[in-house]
Amino acid sequence: MSNKRKGILLAIIGPIMWGISGNVAEYLFSVPNVTPQWLVTIRLFGSGILLLFWCLVTEPKKTMAVWKSPHTIINLLVFGLAGVLVSQYTYFSAVAETNAPTATIMQMSGTVFIIVYLALRSWQLPRRLDVISVIFAVAGTFFLITHGHLNSLAITPMGAIWGVLSGLGAAFYTLLPRKLLKEYDTKLAIGWAMLFAGIVMLPGSLSLATPKITVPVFAAIFYVTVFGTMLAYLFYVASLNYLSPATTGMLGVFEPLTATLIGVAFLGTRFGVPEIFGICLILATTFLQTIPTEKLARFSHKPTILK
Rank of each mutant, 00 (worst) to 15 (best):
V131W: 02
L125S: 14
L120N: 08
T104D: 09
A94G: 09
P157R: 11
S109K: 03
A119M: 04
T146F: 06
M108S: 04
V84E: 12
V86K: 09
V84H: 13
V95Y: 04
L176C: 05
S93C: 09
S93K: 08
V78N: 07
A94M: 05
L144E: 11
W123D: 14
I105K: 02
A94F: 04
A137C: 01
I135N: 07
E97T: 10
L168P: 04
A96P: 11
R127W: 10
L85P: 14
Y173A: 03
T146L: 07
L153K: 08
L153N: 10
D130V: 00
Q88G: 08
V164L: 04
T102A: 08
V86M: 15
P177E: 11
A96L: 07
R128V: 13
Q124W: 09
S109Q: 06
Q107G: 02
Y89R: 10
G110Y: 01
V86H: 12
G159T: 01
L168A: 14
G110T: 05
V112Q: 00
V116C: 00
L77A: 15
S152W: 11
P177V: 10
Q107M: 05
A171I: 04
V116M: 01
L168E: 12
F136L: 15
Q124P: 15
L168I: 15
W123T: 14
L125H: 12
N151W: 14
T146E: 10
V112A: 02
W162M: 12
A96N: 11
D130F: 01
V84R: 10
V95H: 06
I132P: 07
T156G: 11
D130N: 10
S133H: 01
I74H: 10
I114D: 00
M158D: 13
G148E: 12
I135K: 06
F143D: 11
V95S: 05
G163Q: 01
A170F: 09
F142E: 09
M106P: 00
T141N: 05
N75A: 14
G167A: 05
S87H: 12
V95P: 11
T102C: 08
W162E: 09
F143E: 11
G80D: 08
N151R: 15
I115F: 00
L175D: 07
P177K: 09
S93I: 06
I105W: 01
S133M: 00
S152E: 14
L77N: 12
T104V: 11
I145R: 05
V95F: 06
G167E: 03
S109V: 09
M158H: 12
N75K: 15
Y173N: 05
G140K: 02
V84M: 12
Q124D: 15
G148W: 06
F92H: 07
S166H: 04
L153Q: 08
L118V: 07
I135V: 05
E97C: 11
T174K: 02
G80T: 10
G83L: 02
I74W: 13
F113N: 11
L175I: 13
R121F: 13
L165G: 10
F172V: 08
L144P: 07
A94T: 07
T90R: 06
V164A: 04
Q88I: 07
T90C: 08
L168M: 15
S166N: 04
H149L: 15
Y173M: 04
F142V: 09
A154K: 15
S87G: 08
A160P: 01
L168V: 15
R128P: 09
T146I: 06
L150W: 14
H147M: 13
S122R: 15
A103Q: 02
V78G: 06
